[in-house]
């Protein structure tokens, strides 16, 4: 077997990378350790576009796959489909973009109508999703406070 090479080296050598997705930040599109993505480098003169699913390297060295929501000449603002925080990513941090993916064994491309519809609907639903997420967090915090208060009362 060839020696191990880094993600950057693989993209530089063949222009593509195939990887299993790890984590929950891109649910429901991609599931942890089940689905796979094919990532390709941006071509000469090609720049990231809005809604591209980009692979980038954070300053701490971690590789992240999130969606570019807004793009300008020098950076993108990204967010995972299942996260609620924004991240600023410089273009020089970006290693490539997803062009195809497998959900279980079913192949999809990012040019398909189905995928584009998913992206559009999921983004439109963000305010409602964020509200529900906030309510869920609030509920759990209240529940935790109530449990602690109950424990204190019972101790007395």
């Amino acid at each position: 077997m060839e020696r191990k090479i880094s993600i950057e080296e693989q993209l530089g050598r063949d222009g593509y990378l195939v990887s299993t997705t790890v984590g929950y930040s891109m649910w429901p599109m991609l599931k942890n350790r089940r689905d796979r993505v094919i990532i390709r480098s941006y071509g000469e003169g090609e720049a990231p576009k809005q809604n591209d699913l980009i692979l980038y390297r954070r300053r701490d060295g971690k590789h992240v796959l999130h969606r570019a929501l807004w793009v300008d000449e020098s950076c993108c603002i990204t967010r995972g489909d299942n996260t609620y925080y924004l991240e600023e990513v410089k273009h020089k941090q970006i290693l490539g973009k997803v062009t195809e993916f497998y959900r279980k064994d079913r192949h999809h491309t990012v040019n398909s109508g189905f995928y584009k519809a998913y992206v559009w609907v999921w983004r439109i639903l963000f305010p409602l999703r964020a509200l529900l997420h906030g309510l869920k967090i609030g509920f759990h915090k209240l529940l935790s406070l109530a449990k602690r208060a109950a424990k204190k009362i019972l101790k007395k």
């Binding site: 195939v18 990887s19 299993t20 790890v22 350790r33 089940r34 796979r36």
Partner: peptide, 10 residues
Amino acid sequence: VAVPVGETSK
């Protein structure tokens, strides 16, 4: 290209 999934990917 072969990639690991599930427990193997850990």
